[in-house]
Simulated scan of single mutants.
Amino acid sequence: MLRSVASGYHVLVRLQRTYATPAIPSALRQLEKDGARVLRAVQTRIETRNELLAKMSDNVTSQEEIAQARQIKELEPLYDAWISWTKARESLLETFPLLSDPDETMRALASDEYASLYDSLSRHLSATFPSLLVPPSPTRSLSALLELKAGVGGSEAALFLTDLLRVYVRYATSRGWQSSIVQSSEVTGGGLRDAIVEIKGEGAYDTLRWESGVHRVQRVPATEASGRVHTSTVTTIVLPLSDEVEPSGDDNLFKMEDVKIEVMRARGAGGQVVNKTESAVRLTHIPTGITVSMQDERSQHQNKRRAFQVLRARLMDIKITQDIAERRETRRSLVRSADRSEKIRTYNYAQDRVTDHRIGLSLMNLQSVMEGGGIQEFLEALRKNWEQEIMEEAIADAK
């Protein structure tokens, strides 16, 4: 291990000495000037890795050492890329004088080698390092629980909620994830007032979390005789879903004594009782005031299990949001899209346009979003935007 630390240290020393060498090609000098912030962030991470490695003992036993070992392991890909960068840079500097060699064959070989090495260094700065500066997401393995609620617009909002639900279910299927509607309530005339859908699959939460917020639709309702465009909204909340669904006394998100459990008879439209047994369940988490009601399943046990699943997802969402806020303090929040009142996207049927207001991206093919795979383009752009913000943080920390 110490040998590895020493090797990393000497690489840094050699690089620093090389920077002082006047024979640096102007193209390389400009490349490093443009990527100076990224290089500084990488150097800071490598120094952190080496310091942690120097502190490690042969027998990792304490929780602190286990956490340090995990951090070192996460930094290994960046360390490998850094070594690759420094070797390519050294090779390029060795090749540079050969571009002026008297032998024409040697000059040609050197030119090809120089171009290849320069391209490798450029890729490191533009793609490899930025991608590795983004730490692994702590929620990357979690499934998702989507809650959709109709907002302004009456029956048109309920119809649009049904359309959005179909978009998410279709997208989940295309990704190989399993989806099931946990709860829903219809309105007179068609459409859904609200719905909760479970999407099970690794990476579902990290992929769909950007969908949290207010979705606005502008279109002419089928019942509108004058052809006037109506504006309606649906609020989507994406929650992290863990595999654990049964309540337990040692849950790390809540204590059972903090949860008030009530059972009652399930009710239908208008409030009438629809069964003779007390199968409906309502949970109240006293410290936060969160209330979850569940009555769609046939038995009290199933409704209770589902209710605890939703409660756990909502509490986990709060915990993740608080952790990010504490870690970032006054910096711009990554979870700003989780602001439930923020208008995040507009679906304009008259203009055949869908616009995401957070990143200013518009697609002039509404049908591809609602009926095809167009939603993927928004999700991918939002993911890249998030990774860019994380990388900017890493660069800022290295100043």
Rank of each mutant, 00 (worst) to 15 (best):
V217L: 05
E326G: 07
A157Y: 12
Q302P: 14
V259K: 09
Q183H: 13
R40A: 13
R265F: 04
V60G: 01
M106Y: 00
S341G: 02
V263Q: 06
V134P: 04
A195P: 00
T188C: 06
G35R: 04
R3K: 12
G374K: 02
L31C: 14
E32P: 11
R45M: 06
Q309R: 14
A204H: 14
L78P: 13
E342W: 07
E186P: 00
A225H: 07
T128A: 14
N50G: 03
L379R: 13
N59M: 05
E90Y: 02
I324N: 07
R89K: 10
E377C: 03
R45H: 01
S299E: 08
R89S: 03
K55E: 13
R40D: 04
Y9I: 10
P77Y: 03
G249P: 14
A195D: 02
L53S: 15
G271T: 02
R353N: 00
V182L: 12
Q322A: 06
R228Q: 10
I83C: 14
K33G: 08
E246Q: 15
T288F: 12
R298T: 08
L121K: 01
I320Y: 05
P221G: 08
A225L: 12
T223S: 06
I24L: 09
S279E: 02
I72F: 01
T21D: 00
L109W: 05
G360K: 03
G203T: 10
Y9G: 11
T291W: 00
R265I: 08
R175M: 13
M316D: 15
D58S: 00
A313E: 15
Q322M: 06
V152C: 08
P130L: 05
F96M: 10
G268A: 03
K33E: 11
T95S: 09
I359K: 11
T277V: 05
V169L: 08
L52Y: 06
R340Q: 05
L117D: 13
P240H: 06
S4T: 10
L109S: 03
D352I: 04
W386C: 12
I395L: 10
D34Y: 10
P130G: 12
T173I: 07
S26Q: 05
L142K: 01
S131F: 02
W386Q: 15
A115N: 09
Q351R: 09
R327A: 07
S185N: 01
R40N: 08
V335L: 13
Y205W: 14
Q71W: 07
L164S: 09
T48C: 08
L239P: 02
L192G: 00
S242M: 07
T288A: 09
I318K: 12
P77E: 09
S141A: 13
G374Q: 06
R312F: 06
E257Q: 08
T173E: 15
G374N: 13
L99W: 00
R175A: 10
R14E: 05
L361M: 15
R265M: 00
H230V: 03
F160W: 13
A23T: 01
D243F: 01
A338K: 10
R305C: 00
A158F: 06
E147P: 00
I24T: 04
Y171A: 04
V167F: 04
R219M: 15
Q30H: 08
